[in-house]
Amino acid sequence: MKGLYDNEMKIVFASKTVNEAFARITVAAFVSQLDPTIDELSDIKTAVSEAVTNSIIHGYENEEGSVEINARIFANNVEIEISDSGKGIENVEIAMRPLYTSKPNLERSGMGFTIMQSFMDEMKVESSLGFGTRVIMRKKIRSVEEEQVS
């Protein structure tokens, strides 16, 4: 925990959709030490909600399991890692296509990954069938940068 990052946190919670709000609010509270704008915070909350929902409804298909979030801050960057030990994704490239969903019956729209990509600066998906999925996202908080300039 020393040296690499300015700050770091980790939460683990049960794969229940009721925890989606808990997860995004907790990450937002952690990120708020960088003094983000309302829009930046809203983007982060949305991206976290997408990844956490995916772990719960796709990774564990609403079965028991746990979702882990690691968040790190270095300078004015935030890195958020969301992982599950669920069923994994067979083809990440296909899964990431806009409007692709394996669960249209749940009224899913297939826009989760597209939203994560466009609301964050960087997004990476690592997945292994039968073992789980990890989504890593990064965003630079610009309000801090602006303050330093002025």
Binding site: S42, K45, S49, E50, L106, E107, S109, G112, I115
Partner: peptide, 14 residues
Amino acid sequence: ISFMDSSGIGMVLG
């Protein structure tokens, strides 16, 4: 409503 993620898309379209 101040927050909505992509779940809202399917909810509205349905």
